[in-house]
């Protein structure tokens, strides 16, 4: 997957990703309309399908609301690359099938507007603009299975069928 980068800072919390006042729906496309609204009110109209978010430390801290990764996924974000993720967001993203990658170097060096190409299976992040290549922290094997299945619900359904 290839796309343009939007940069955000440290401690992007779930209230910035999707404020509680919009949790009156669980429709992903409605949530997507307000995604990142309190961090950057214009982001929703600027971003394009397939874009990436590159952020600092502790991305997704705060609430356990799964609406946060759902909104990002429905907004068309290909993957989030951050220095680190908050624990519940990390788990929720994997459970609903939103790709996330941890790489401090990539988060430091990739700039807003850069074009990047990501190979999730290899954990490879290629900056097409600067020609740099980064590798994300690999996921533990159990989580790789969850990711491969497309999230927890699909994983359980598949394991049941076996």
């Amino acid at each position: 997957m290839q796309g343009k980068v939007w940069k955000f800072g440290d401690n992007i919390d779930t209230d910035l990703i999707i404020p509680a006042r919009y949790l009156n729906t669980s429709d992903p496309s409605e949530l997507a309309e307000h995604c990142m609204e309190d961090a950057d009110p214009n982001w929703v109209s600027k971003k394009e399908k397939g874009d990436f978010i590159v952020a600092g430390e502790n991305f997704g801290c705060g609430s356990s609301r799964e609406h946060a990764p759902i909104a990002l996924k429905a907004a068309g974000v290909s993957a989030i690359i951050a220095k680190s993720f908050a624990r519940i967001f990390y788990r929720n993203a994997i459970n609903i099938g939103l790709p996330i990658m941890e790489s401090e170097e990539a988060a430091n060096e990739i700039k807003e507007g850069d074009k990047i190409e990501v190979d999730l299976a290899k954990g490879e992040i290629k900056n097409v603009s600067s020609k740099m290549i980064y590798y994300a922290q690999p996921f533990p094997p159990f989580m790789q299975k969850l990711i491969k299945a497309g999230g927890l619900i699909n994983y359980i359904k598949k394991s049941k069928r076996r």
């Binding site: 609430s63 356990s64 929720n92 609903i96 927890l152």
Partner: peptide
Amino acid sequence: GADSHTCTYGAINVFSTGIGSTD
């Protein structure tokens, strides 16, 4: 608990933790 502050019951020696809706 599907709420991040589920860790509250740690005060009474419960291992309790917040998770999301799918979990």
